[in-house]
């Protein structure tokens, strides 16, 4: 899946995260801002990369501002941003590329 245009999803409310995706320059560039980066930074990164892998996205600049989001929220916000970037809102691959 190719990032077509910059897109964002999520909020800065507690238990949420704000995700931004932009076209990369030949790989995955990952940026994370979180109050719990020392405790959960590696886990958030793992979830983010796993989600991108499921979606088949390998050329992206991914930015996450985390406000204590659960893994399921991080996945949801990344997917929402990626599908916004390609403009797809119907016939989504639930249980396929979109999976827990």
């Amino acid at each position: 899946m190719e990032i077509k245009k910059p897109a964002a999803a999520g909020t800065l409310e507690s238990s949420d995260c704000q995700v931004t995706v932009e076209a990369g320059s030949g790989g995955i560039e990952f940026s994370l801002d979180s109050a719990v980066i020392n405790q959960y930074g590696n886990q958030i990164r793992k979830v983010a990369f796993d989600t991108l892998k499921n979606l088949g996205v390998n050329n992206v600049r991914l930015t996450i501002v985390d406000k204590g989001a659960l893994d399921c929220t991080i996945r949801a916000r990344i997917e929402a941003a990626v599908y916004r970037s390609v403009g797809q809102t119907e016939n989504l691959p639930w249980g396929g590329a979109i999976r827990s």
Binding site: A9, R99, S100
Partner: peptide, 16 residues
């Protein structure tokens, strides 16, 4: 936010 809500819903149902 209709699109984003669905992703949130899907993963909540699957994970929580």
């Amino acid at each position: 936010q209709k699109d984003a809500a669905r992703f949130s819903l899907y993963h909540a149902l699957r994970s929580i």
